[in-house]
Nucleic acid binder design. Structure first.
Lengths: 237, 237
DNA sequence: TGTACATCAGTGAACGCGCGTTCACTGATGTAC
DNA sequence: TGTACATCAGTGAACGCGCGTTCACTGATGTAC
């Protein structure tokens, strides 16, 4: 049977396939991914996909990298917009970024799960592909903390943060091979991330439905509290 | 072919099957569960399992309930032992409980993932079976907070905790149908849980390997910090 | 304007696999007499 | 002590299914002349 595709129609693209995959995962969960089912939905036979992704794992990798990139973009533009719109205050920009973190997770639950949920059995993410985008997202937060730190607004030598001397924080070099972040900045970033991440994970998988009635309000309260404790928010909002 | 089993051998039991399932999940991840593979490892044919678990979902439910129960037991005995060994101070007992939370997760990564990781697609946990044990574990934490609260050691009316008036915290009734926990207690419990849970999830799925070199120390520092902020730990350890 | 040709995206059949579940059955066990 | 019998845990074959991947192929397209 001849291919029905005419030259006007866009035909199969890597983008098409990824979109189909994302849609399928939305319905079936991250482990419901299936080359054959994606092909079926695109009105194409399964082997056709091999022209774009030699193996299923390559498709998964592409989806993961896309997700990290999309999240990093969302965080980055949220920070920039807040800077342009409201003020240059790093605390307020950080607040906008943290709001966006949750918003992105709730708007893209499948992709968030793909990144941060159970590892897919038998699949090993190639770090050299996924790591840069993953780091870029977290660096948005670290950069704002660094800015506050350089303004002397974070706890430091004069106003020491409780931080045990034996605690060794791994060194994460800044994006462009610049000087590494000071360990106070990394510590605060990680600490805040843990808190926020736990909230979102438990909300996403519905472990807190009987405990918290308005998870959005709760989140908002927590991030304001967090930033206020660091001296980054003087007035509310 | 006759059954090789003689009366001395224990033969197949529900416990055997669950143990095999847990072992399989340790190797293959929570979604690697397979009736046939479990049966194969137990030296038995797949239909034999149907005498003990009518459907695969029933086996999963049993595993989930077991995990919640085991975690709740671990938390509960940790609190009791700390009370007997060290002091009756609820803060110190809480510290022991929080240490146990992480220890249990790291010792039972598969079961922790089964409970708190991605939902298994197509499987819906029957709440009436899983909820009591899930609540029991969390109640260990809440009970200790309640004890501190009744001793006036938590922030209260006199020494108010920042807690927005509009924040509505769902009511969780105490185990035996006793009076519900005060909302300060629930709030602090949930808040701490979020923080701790995020740490453990990110550690378990190895998202923080490049950020934190000694995750055990980091965790220890965080929980001591957390309790100190609530006024539950005056001296270290 | 017309013809020959290379390209290459997508096809269809097939591979070997593992899965959950059903079914009639078998045969060792323990009990009742 | 011996015999007849009910029980029921586990068997083996079969069902229908979907999966990832391979392979030789086809035929529309665009290009070169």
């Amino acid at each position: 049977m001849p291919r029905p595709r005419s030259s006007q129609q866009p035909g199969l693209t890597a983008g098409n396939i990824k979109d189909g995959a994302r849609q399928l995962m939305d319905e079936m969960g991250t482990q419901g991914l299936s080359l054959r089912e994606i092909a079926r939905r695109l009105g194409v036979t399964a082997p056709a996909i091999y022209n774009y992704f030699p193996r299923l794992d390559d498709l998964i990798t592409a989806l993961i990298v896309d997700a990290y990139r999309d999240l990093a973009d969302a965080l980055s533009t949220a920070g920039q917009r807040a800077g342009a719109r409201v003020s240059a205050d790093p605390g307020k920009r950080l607040l906008a970024v943290l709001r966006t973190y949750r918003a992105w997770a709730l708007e893209h639950p499948t992709e968030f799960t793909l990144i941060y949920g159970n590892p897919i059995p038998g699949y090993q993410a190639p770090e050299e592909q996924t790591r840069p985008e993953a780091v870029r997202g977290f660096a948005v937060i670290l950069d704002l903390l660094l800015e506050a730190h350089s303004q002397g607004r974070l706890p430091g030598r004069a106003n020491p943060l409780p931080m045990p001397p034996t605690l060794k924080v791994g060194i994460l070099s800044a994006p462009e091979g610049q000087t590494p972040y000071p360990s106070e900045v990394v510590y605060l970033g990680v600490m805040g991330w843990y808190h926020i991440h736990g909230m979102i994970m438990l909300e996403l998988f519905e472990h807190n439905t009987s405990l918290v009635s308005d998870t959005g309000l709760f989140y908002e309260f927590e991030i304001q509290n967090l930033l206020a404790r660091l001296g980054l928010l003087t007035e509310t909002n």
